[in-house]
Design a protein around this nucleic acid. Structure first.
Length: 846
RNA sequence: GCCGGAGUGGCGGAAUUGGUAGACGCGUACGACUCAAAAUCGUAUAUCUUUGGGUGUGUGGGUUCAAGUCCCACCUCCGGCACCA
């Protein structure tokens, strides 16, 4: 061991040694050790490991190392999510083969990953673009096809003109492509859909049993967007029914017209009966031209009446008008709305614009009136009054408005509001002007009215089925062939993997590159017969990552994606580390995938991730997101060559609480500070002696063991490190430190800084520190018999006295009252009260 | 608008069940070592101050002997959803 701490030398040495000795190769089971599966989302082989990768893999590695030292048989695997658009786009830009480019990157990244000193079991590595991997992606797809979990449909799809491919709803962020940021347009296309909506309920309900952050669960619930309501049939013309979805069946008597989405299929059917067809068609086309974004941003309530079409309100049996308007969305509910202007803000706006009747049917309960206000509309002016606008309008005026509100509804016999006195109120309450249902609460009425008119109670979801077809080259080929009649058939296992053809010009032009492969066409005809054609789209890469974690368990198996025994031994994953951007994409898709596999009896569990940790983001030193254009990118390789991998790992662990996904700016001086700490740990070796350390230090050491164990367990690496720093500060003040104590200190630090601790440990022991047992604290050393107690007077600290723990109130009172600092405040004054909390506080109230 | 989370020094961030706010690190200042610098080590570092003490955890109230922590109202920021019937 040299006198200087030289990370470059020792880190490489130990990485090689660990690999040679295979100390991180994880057996399927280990005597006396419980299995634990820890996983970090695998990377895209984009070519370069950035600080984010270090954060993503080195932090979970701290936890994996801790758990291994605590006696678990820990699986912490790694692989590459190597199919996909980024790789393909980059390859096209450089004029290379996507495969060559990708595999070159993988080789490069593998070495970079090794330089982190992470305890990956490399023998279990997977690469999703390997035929032996995608063979099983394809097989699962065929299983889903056979069991009606996947289907082909022609629908409006999100199309990215830049990437020349379809995108899933989840990949459209605020109307733009998740990858390239360009505007997404709508297009009619055939694509393969996965029935994720079939599992909408369990995807929400099973969140309950997961040990995840509430924010992640909530985001998923909102994405799935379950709403309970009713389907109500409205008779249109003769014998034709139109279903509408509503959450407010209690307002059915207040329905004064119906509005359809311009895309609603019935409109074309009614062409003959609509007397103003030209006008209607014109409107439909003008809406079709608008982008989804424009349509959502315009708040004006435009619309056209379908003249000649009349609906019957099933409650009142009165005829009502039918309209189309673009504020009604085709994709939600049934694409048709029953309009209740008197009790819905949007309907009120629309009704005022187009002069449609307001029928008042719900009297808000008195409780609502205290802090909320109705929407009041009068004449042509809409003044929407809501809760929480107290700043602008005083309480008096609010009361006046309520007064006016009651005035209007009380003066009206049948609830049909006259022009100029139109009022809307979206609150629930009791029913009026609703025949036999009068007096019922909204809640009761919803059920009763729905049943009375032959409707059904139902749920509706925001979630759409997952479209997985991609018109690109570098992805898993969809294992489907079409017979001469054009009917799809899944490819049987014996012909899987259904290889990605290589005789393809993969430059994207909007059509699928695989269609240009002669080999693929010939292969299909050779196997299936003349006239058979292959599917030419590839799969969304989120399919690959939906099940990859099973393959780590049995990555060489040729007969099945993973042996059942191994799945039972390892799953579910105890803790899954990843980025928050995947909350409504990867995390949702893979939960669906597992549920689908489970429904086919292929896996024994319905959830794969017991725990989930979303990590934060490492920002540039300027507090901005790292980007080449801003010139604030930190290159980890560079930093490692300067301070070593241990310092980089430790700095990232120290930068902020890993269990809270915040944004933490990289401070170049911070790394240096951590490097200084490691150098001091190195130098402390010289103070090690055979004599045990003094008792005070042993006490601190045991407190440190406790704190570090607890903090590492909670992923609060930052405070674990600060405790180790405090202990080092103490140790440095001593002349000598016992060998045993020093070794324990090294063990505590080992998960965080694996190389330096191994090197120092090696000067005492022949076996690896990482195979040693994590230290346990001894209660005996934690018990302090003295305590410095703050003495407060009227709640302010005035003195501190050292007392025996558990001292009685009488004893301490006598002691405190003799203290000069206390006398100064108390003398001549009456003591009203004394509060003494054992070992916590002593407070005198005067 | 609805839902979730967060506001603490110059900076990143600490503070079990309410009980010494600012741990630890960075930065800064001064000192030691040095011909000098770097590195290293030591000391100080919320703020005001008449040196008694006062004030301080986004704002305003409240509960309590005691509030960063609990309650009410609000402001700001971050994330998710949003013409969703």
């Amino acid at each position: 061991m040299s006198h200087e701490y030289n990370p470059k030398e020792i880190e490489k040495k130990w990485q090689d040694t660990w690999e040679k000795q295979g100390i991180y190769t994880t057996p399927e089971s280990k005597d006396g050790a419980e299995n634990m599966y820890l996983l970090s989302e695998f990377p895209y082989p984009s070519g370069n490991l950035h600080v984010g990768h270090w954060y993503a893999f080195a932090m979970p590695d701290i936890y994996a190392r801790l758990k291994r030292m605590q006696g678990y048989n820990v699986l912490y695997p790694i692989g590459f999510d190597s199919f996909g658009l980024p790789a393909e786009n980059a390859a096209i830009k450089r004029g290379l083969d996507p495969k060559e480019w990708t595999y070159g990157n993988i080789d490069y990244m593998r070495n970079q990953l090794k330089s982190m000193g992470a305890s990956f079991d490399w023998s279990r590595e997977i690469i999703t673009s390997e035929p032996e991997f995608y063979r099983w992606t394809q097989w699962m797809f065929t299983q889903f096809f056979e069991n009606d979990l996947v289907y082909r449909d022609i629908t409006k799809v999100n199309w990215c003109e830049q990437c020349k491919t379809i995108l899933a709803n989840e990949q459209v962020i605020a109307g733009k492509c998740e990858r390239c940021g360009s505007e997404v347009i709508q297009k009619d296309m055939a694509q393969w859909m996965l029935r994720i909506t079939k599992f909408a309920d369990p995807l929400i309900d099973d969140l309950e049993k997961l040990n995840w952050d509430e924010s992640i669960k909530q985001a998923q619930r909102e994405w799935i967007g379950r709403k309970e309501g009713s389907l109500i049939p409205f008779e249109i013309q003769k014998n034709e029914n139109l279903e509408v979805f509503t959450t407010r069946a209690d307002t059915l008597f207040g329905v004064t017209y119906i509005v359809l989405a311009p895309e609603h299929k019935k409109i074309q059917k009614w062409k003959e009966q609509i007397t103003n067809w030209a006008e209607v068609e014109n409107y439909v086309q003008s809406v079709a031209k608008k982008s989804e974004r424009d349509r959502q941003q315009t708040k004006e309530k435009t619309g056209v009446r379908l003249e000649g079409i009349t609906a019957i309100n099933p409650a009142t049996k009165k005829p009502i008008e039918v309209w189309i308007a673009d504020y009604v969305l085709a994709g939600f509910g049934t694409g048709a709305v029953m309009a209740v202007p008197a009790h819905d803000e949007r309907d009120a706006e629309f009704a005022l614009t187009h002069d449609l009747p307001f029928q008042f049917v719900i009297l808000p309960s008195a409780g609502e009136i205290g802090h909320s206000r109705p929407l009041i509309t009068s004449g042509e002016n809409v003044s929407i009054l809501e809760a929480g606008a107290h700043e602008e309008k005083g309480q008096k005026q609010i009361n006046a408005e309520w007064h006016a509100f009651y005035d209007i509804i009380e003066h009206d016999k049948d609830g049909l509001l006259p022009k100029g006195k139109r009022v809307a109120c979206s609150f629930e309450g009791r029913l009026i002007h609703s025949g036999e249902f009068n007096g019922l609460s909204s809640e009761e009425a919803r059920v009763k009215i729905t049943k009375a008119v032959g409707g059904t109670l139902t749920k509706t979801y925001r979630l759409r089925d997952w479209g997985v077809s991609r018109q690109r080259y570098w992805g898993t080929p969809i294992p489907i062939v079409y017979d001469p009649e054009g009917l799809p058939h899944s490819i049987p296992l014996e012909h899987l993997p259904w290889q990605l053809p290589t005789d393809v010009d993969y430059t994207p032009d909007g059509t699928a590159p695989l269609a240009r492969s002669q080999e693929l066409r010939e292969r299909t005809e050779n196997i299936f017969g003349k006239g058979w054609t292959p599917e030419v789209d590839t799969m969304d890469t989120f399919v690959d990552s939906s099940w990859y974690f099973y393959r780590y368990l049995d990555n060489k198996n040729q007969d099945i994606f993973a042996k059942e025994d191994f799945i039972k031994q390892w799953m579910p994953i105890s803790l899954y580390f990843g980025g928050s951007e995947h909350t409504t994409m990867h995390l949702l898709y893979s939960r669906f995938w597992v549920k689908a596999l489970h429904s086919l009896g292929l896996v024994p569990h319905s959830e794969a991730y017991e725990g989930r940790s979303n990590r934060g983001l490492i920002l540039g030193p300027d507090g901005q997101k790292m980007s080449k254009s801003k010139g604030n990118v930190i290159d980890p390789d560079e930093v490692v060559s300067f301070v070593g991998a241990d310092a980089v790992r430790m700095y990232l662990a120290f930068i902020g609480p890993f269990n809270e996904p915040g944004n933490y700016p990289w401070d170049p001086n911070g790394v240096v500070g951590v490097k200084r700490f490691l150098e001091r740990v190195w130098r402390l070796r010289e103070k090690v002696s055979k004599e045990p350390s003094e008792e005070l230090f042993v006490k601190s050491l045991h407190q440190t063991i406790k704190k570090v164990s607890e903090d590492l367990e909670r992923l609060k690496f930052n405070t674990a490190i600060s405790q180790l720093m405090t202990l080092l500060n103490q140790a440095e003040k001593l002349e000598k430190i016992g060998e045993g104590e020093y070794k324990i200190f090294l063990q505590l630090l080992a998960p965080i800084a694996p190389h330096i601790t191994e090197e120092l440990w090696n000067s005492f022991e022949d076996t690896s520190i990482h195979q040693s047992s994590f230290p346990q604290y001894n209660e005996r050393f934690l018990a302090d018999d003295e305590k410095t107690l703050p003495i407060q007077i009227n709640g302010k600290n005035r003195a501190f006295i050292k007392v025996k723990k558990g001292i009685s109130e009488k004893e301490i009172t006598d002691l405190v009252l003799t203290q000069d600092e206390v006398k100064k405040w108390v003398s001549g004054k009456e003591i009203k009260k004394i509060i003494y909390k054992e070992d916590k506080i002593f407070n005198i109230v005067i």
